[in-house]
């Protein structure tokens, strides 16, 4: 196995380990922290795929932003929630779900196993500059639409989460 293969194996094991910890841990806060391992592993995977800008964006948005958002969501609601109600999900339902998901995974594996594309050096030099140029020429309209979407989501989140006037008066 080559050196990059070993690096890939370590990253893949870390990513899957983080996912499995997210599934099996008892406390919600621990699950959220376990996901940071997966997010960082996926960022390392992007570096391996020579997508440095996407890797940095992954660390900023997921490990930084979304994890903090989830932690605040847990703390503002029921932060002592250990999954003691987890037993209410019947093990029969868990088994059925597991079998369905495993079937999906196995079928998808047989779909991707014959894929043998060769990696090509898509771009030599500064990826970030090239991404910026494409973003501001070919994809300028989706880029602006995303900015509007983020603005709408920001205003919507503030409106949804803030108290109503009658509620505040009570």
């Amino acid at each position: 196995m080559s050196s990059s293969g070993i690096v890939f194996s370590i990253i893949a094991i870390c990513a899957i380990l983080g996912g499995l910890m997210m599934i099996t841990l008892k406390k919600v806060m621990h699950m959220t922290v376990a996901m940071i391992l997966t997010y960082f592993s996926i960022a390392a995977l992007y570096v391996l795929l020579t997508a440095e800008f996407v890797a940095v964006a992954q660390v900023l948005v997921y490990s930084g932003g979304i994890t903090i958002l989830m932690v605040f969501g847990i703390m503002l609601t029921y932060h002592k929630a250990e999954n003691r109600d987890e037993e209410k999900v019947s093990s029969f339902r868990k088994l059925i779900t597991f079998l369905s998901v495993a079937t999906l995974g196995i079928v998808s594996y047989f779909l991707v196993a014959p894929v043998d594309f060769v990696a090509e050096e898509i771009f030599v030099g500064d990826h970030t500059k090239a991404i910026g140029e494409i973003l501001y020429t070919n994809y300028i309209i989706p880029f602006e639409l995303v900015s509007i979407l983020l603005l709408v989501a920001l205003i919507g989140a503030v409106l949804l989460a803030k108290k109503d006037k009658e509620e505040a008066n009570e």
Binding site: I16, G19, L20, A113, V115
Partner: peptide, 25 residues
């Protein structure tokens, strides 16, 4: 590294996420 190993890792992570979304309360 063959392309299929990256795709396989993506499948595994997707399945873990799908299982969690369907069984967690």
């Amino acid at each position: 590294i063959p392309a299929s190993s990256f795709l396989l890792l993506a499948i595994i992570l997707f399945c873990i996420g799908l299982y969690g979304a369907l069984t967690k309360r």
